[in-house]
Design a protein around this nucleic acid. Structure first.
Lengths: 207, 207
DNA sequence: TTGCTTACCGAACAGTGTTTAGTATGCAAG
DNA sequence: CTTGCATACTAAACACTGTTCGGTAAGCAA
């Protein structure tokens, strides 16, 4: 073990480390996974990992990238299947949801979701419920007034998820620069006042 | 300083600590903020914080709860203003967006968003761009086929934000239990095939 | 003055990511 | 076969983290 590793050997080694890391992320959670625990599972010394990754963040980024590429593989394969656009749409949606629920740890890793739930204080829980009640109550008012149709709970989730997503993307500078700064507010206002989502929320199978 | 503090003094102390913590979260980021740095800014010893918070997680939860309550205050105040439902809708939407962009650190704290961006490997960035291209390309196909109308970029963001939000909520067990397990997939399929969002994405002011 | 409760602190402990000096391995050269 | 050498890997340390514990000093009651 003193001659230089080939490129493929290095890549295999990186993949092995990455796999152990992702397994521990899924099993113990991200915060409880240390370089020492990963090295221990490999039967290595902690410092040895630094031959393959510059630091812990780079290892984390590598596992994220691998999970994200698995996700893209599934989506693209589903969308590439034969059929008309409706069928391919359905296959793509199914692939998206299937991946999320078959590999929840990978999905959480991709989107950097914390699975911590035990560190919620009663005060925090109360604040969350209050916020949820406020936003959901608004949707209920809209439904009661006949301005939106469907199940208020589900409708509210779609609603606020979309708005939240727009804000996050705007903050991250991911929206295309040609959009003026206020466009997001206009879009949100239209969401809120036009009932564009009013076909959603009615539970029922598609035909 | 040896006689017991009154309840209000204790609360003031907790608030002072919390304020310093939130300021450091906003300034240096969440990961770079330690109990030692917070104590140092207060001129205290690190151990002293444990008289007011059981541990770091509880301090974090307190700051989260405080920020979330400030958020709810703004939303509720806007929605409680006089006017018809349209006007109150608009006020609520404005309040939501204004808070998010006036206090981005608080918004990120509330929704546990990591502001880390420098730890992105080229490989991870490539994987993200690939995934983004795949999902956006699908929307573009829909628009090209005349099944959706509007700006594909913005439309895609709303689209995937909503779906992502539904999955996260389903994973967290936040969707109401009466909804059968497959309802989320049906809703997503309807999103994908019904063009329910087809009124969105056309840039332009509301009248 | 004595005693006691109490806010606060200094110092330590275990654990983390990371660096550095060093060991031992196995091929290549003499 | 011996020597040299590049190299995969390690042991030990460093600086830092959250957290705990014994101790100190301050102010009130007796």
């Amino acid at each position: 073990m003193a001659l230089p590793l080939t490129d493929t050997q290095v890549r295999d080694c990186r993949d092995r480390i990455r796999a152990v890391a992702e397994a521990q992320f899924a099993r113990r959670g991200l915060a409880a996974t240390s370089l020492r625990s990963i090295a221990a599972e490999l039967g290595w010394a902690p410092a040895s990992l630094y031959r393959y990754f510059r630091n812990k963040d780079e290892l984390l980024a590598a596992t994220r990238a691998a999970a994200l590429n698995r996700f893209s593989d599934r989506i693209e394969a589903a969308y590439a299947q034969p059929g008309d656009l409706w069928e391919r749409s359905r296959a793509l949606g199914d692939a998206y949801v299937d991946f999320a629920f078959e590999q929840p740890a990978a999905y959480q890793l991709i989107f950097a979701l914390e699975q911590a739930d035990g560190d919620k204080t009663p005060a925090l829980r109360a604040a969350e419920e209050r916020s949820h009640r406020t936003l959901t109550g608004y949707i209920e008012d809209m439904v009661a007034a006949g301005l939106l149709e469907g199940d208020p709970e589900l409708l509210g989730h779609v609603y606020w998820s979309a708005i939240h997503g727009l804000i996050v993307l705007q903050m991250a500078g991911k929206l295309k620069p040609s959009l003026p700064f206020d466009t997001i507010r206009h879009e949100i206002t239209r969401l809120l006042t036009r009932g564009a989502l009013n076909r959603l929320g009615r539970a029922g199978h598609i035909d």
